[in-house]
Design a binder for these strands. Structure first.
Lengths: 147, 147
DNA sequence: TCGAAACTGAGAATCATTATCAAGATAACA
DNA sequence: TGTTATCTTGATAATGATTCTCAGTTTCGA
């Protein structure tokens, strides 16, 4: 996939600006996340990549990538933090959150709905003294696997 | 406030169905939460109620109330779980999430916007095999205190 | 008033995450 | 091409939130 390479180049550039390297471990994390269909926690990634990268390094990779703006953290069930590629890499989307098993699936909204949300967020910015930088609609319920 | 009493009666009834009592500690938790303007974590509540209830009991109260459907958990920054009164008690609302300090403020949407969201959620239910039970719009950014 | 069931508090145990630190890779450059 | 400054890594210890355990206490109904 050329898309993968493009993303890799963009990330490499971004990390360069941040003064850090795009190492094997970090590439592996990005790879696993771009293969995933939703946010993943450190331990989920650890399994996905078959213990290739030790947990402690994995956590460090995640926080480096997060600080560089390559990833976005997503706080989920049971005090777990799951990460996904940032919107500028993966596109804007929303979440289906399973209240039973905690997994999160990405979904996209219609352009119409998305436009309305954007407008709403602007309104909020004015109404409350809150500097909005983004938004996510979370739909809660039971996923297919949790019947 | 009569509202408080009404809520208390409703909660008492609900807990009765669940076969648990509405004890002093649990009342204190509900009181602190209904005074708050957004979700609160166990340790925040512990401070709010001036160590009146020991942390271990507080956690237990939270999980009992959660299981009985009186509270709703909200996963926030740094693996913290914050709770708030469930929607059937506190009304439906959305969140302003500060990415810096992690505090969450409740907001309400216009009826128009809310109707659109509801409609959207129904669409999602059909399109994906996902049994939606609720939704929240999270607006991310910096709160007034974090300039 | 007695006993079963529910509750409480203190402390130990768990789990995710972060910090530490010595050893290993890399890049720039003399 | 060796040298050095810097960035990384991996193992391990430490932290912080949350859950578990268990003995003692309270509460409700018979």
């Amino acid at each position: 996939m050329t898309a993968g390479n493009t993303i890799d180049r963009e990330i490499e550039a971004r990390l360069g600006e941040a003064g850090v390297r795009y190492t094997r471990a970090r590439r592996a994390v990005v790879g696993a996340l771009s293969r995933a269909d939703g946010p993943r926690s450190a331990s989920e990634l650890h399994q996905d990549m078959e213990q290739d990268v030790p947990l402690s390094s994995l956590y460090r990779s995640l926080s480096v990538l997060d600080e560089a703006g390559v990833l976005e953290p997503h706080n989920s069930l049971k005090g777990l933090t799951r990460y996904e590629l940032a919107e500028w890499l993966a596109g804007h989307h929303h979440h289906l959150v399973c209240l039973i098993c905690g997994t999160v699936e990405d979904i996209e909204l219609s352009a119409d709905m998305e436009a309305r949300l954007e407008h709403l967020v602007e309104t909020v910015t004015d109404e409350f003294s809150f500097a909005a930088s983004g938004h996510t609609l979370e739909v809660h319920g039971r996923c297919a696997r949790c019947v």
